[in-house]
Amino acid sequence: MAFSLTPELEKLVDDLLTRYPTKRAGCIPLLHLCQRQVGWISSEVIDFVAKRLDMSTSEVKGVVTFYTMFHQRQVAPNVIWVCRTLACEIRGGRLLQKHLEKRLGCKVGETSKDGQFTLLSAECLAACGQGPAIQINDQYYENLTVEKLDKILDEYAVENPKAATVTK
């Protein structure tokens, strides 16, 4: 099925394209908008963006695959990025990741059994002074310990009963 943006988002695109002297400069912001709507970059989204910006689909595909924040596969409603780079890791980032894998019952790169979380490994989140850090969706969580992380997930489980099965 062909993809299209909701009218509200489509309005944003019109405004967006006034910012640049070329259409294709809107490529990355537009892909973000599409991902905001459907959660990932499907081949329909690629077609849509290519048409909207007069690009070839290979160019859009090249762009999508270049950047790690564009999901090439469907992901869970919540995405957890765990920083694995040095400053976080020397403050325990790897143990945090192991704990998350255990608690969610999935490895990095996979989705939890209840389908609520996709766990991904992130390179430096620019939170080194507050490491170890993770990002859940748009939110940073910093200065974490296993204990603090558990609390965050517990609170999350209360708010989202669907996710309670594995996050407890």
Partner: peptide, 25 residues
């Protein structure tokens, strides 16, 4: 202008390529 997850885009010419809607090379 948002990036999309590529350290190399902090390199100034990659940043410009990314800004123009290209791969950040």
């Amino acid at each position: 202008q948002p990036g999309a997850g590529a350290y190399i885009c902090g390199e100034e010419s990659s940043l410009l390529n990314s800004l123009e809607g290209n791969r950040g090379e």
